[in-house]
Simulated scan of single mutants.
Amino acid sequence: MNSKRLKRISEEIKKIVSELLKEGLKDPRISMMTSITEVEVTKDLRYAKIYVSILGDENEREETLTGLKNATGFIRKEIGNKLKIRYTPEPIFCLDKSIERGVYISQLLNKIKQEEESKAKVNENGNE
């Protein structure tokens, strides 16, 4: 299948599921701090791997993933209603920890920068 078409379908699914997270899903287990980072659709359009980023602790992530997995049928139905394609892909939710890793790396870099600045100040004071 054409890769441009797969990308368009992936983006449409991302929009639909993001909209559902904001307005359509009423499950209290699903955190308000949930966002869709990426969607990958298989070439045969049977499955859509939906990467989800959840801000919160481990328990909150587990609860949100459980809520999303329980709502898979409803989400698939909504995707089918809004997308006019022969097969409606089966949503598969995966936890995406890339944002958390980015924040962690940023914190490490800031810590290193502060340590280097404090060493430079000590050297300046020692040379005077």
Rank of each mutant, 00 (worst) to 15 (best):
Y104A: 11
I75E: 02
V52P: 12
E124V: 10
D96V: 09
N59T: 04
G56K: 01
K97C: 03
L83Q: 07
K82Q: 15
T64Y: 02
R101A: 07
K113C: 02
M32N: 14
T66L: 15
C94A: 08
L21D: 07
T72I: 02
E63K: 10
E90V: 03
T88Y: 01
T37A: 09
S118V: 00
R86Y: 10
N110A: 04
L68C: 03
G102N: 14
P89E: 14
Y51F: 15
I79P: 01
K69T: 11
S35I: 11
N70M: 12
P28G: 07
Y104I: 06
C94G: 03
N127P: 02
R8N: 13
P91W: 10
S10A: 14
E63Y: 03
I54W: 08
T66K: 13
A48E: 04
A120E: 15
E58H: 11
E12F: 01
S118G: 00
D57S: 12
F74L: 04
K49D: 13
S98A: 09
E38L: 00
Y47L: 07
E40D: 14
G56P: 03
T34E: 09
S35G: 00
K15T: 08
D44C: 02
K113M: 12
C94M: 08
D96Y: 06
N81P: 00
G102C: 08
L109V: 13
R5M: 13
P89T: 14
L95G: 01
L95C: 03
R61M: 09
K121P: 00
Y47P: 00
R46N: 13
L95V: 00
S106I: 00
E78C: 00
K77F: 13
Q107K: 14
E128T: 09
N123Y: 15
I36W: 05
I112C: 04
P28H: 04
D57A: 06
L108G: 04
S18H: 02
S53F: 03
K82D: 08
M32V: 04
E100Y: 02
S3V: 10
K15W: 13
K77E: 15
T42E: 12
K69H: 14
T34L: 09
C94L: 05
L25R: 03
F74V: 04
N2T: 04
K22S: 13
L25S: 10
T72K: 12
E115C: 02
G67L: 09
I105W: 06
G56A: 11
K22P: 08
L55E: 12
G67I: 01
E116I: 10
K121M: 12
E116S: 06
I99C: 06
L68D: 05
L108Y: 06
I79F: 02
E60Q: 12
T37S: 15
L109N: 09
N123H: 08
K97I: 05
P28Q: 06
K119N: 11
V41G: 08
P89W: 01
S106M: 05
P89R: 05
I92W: 09
G126F: 10
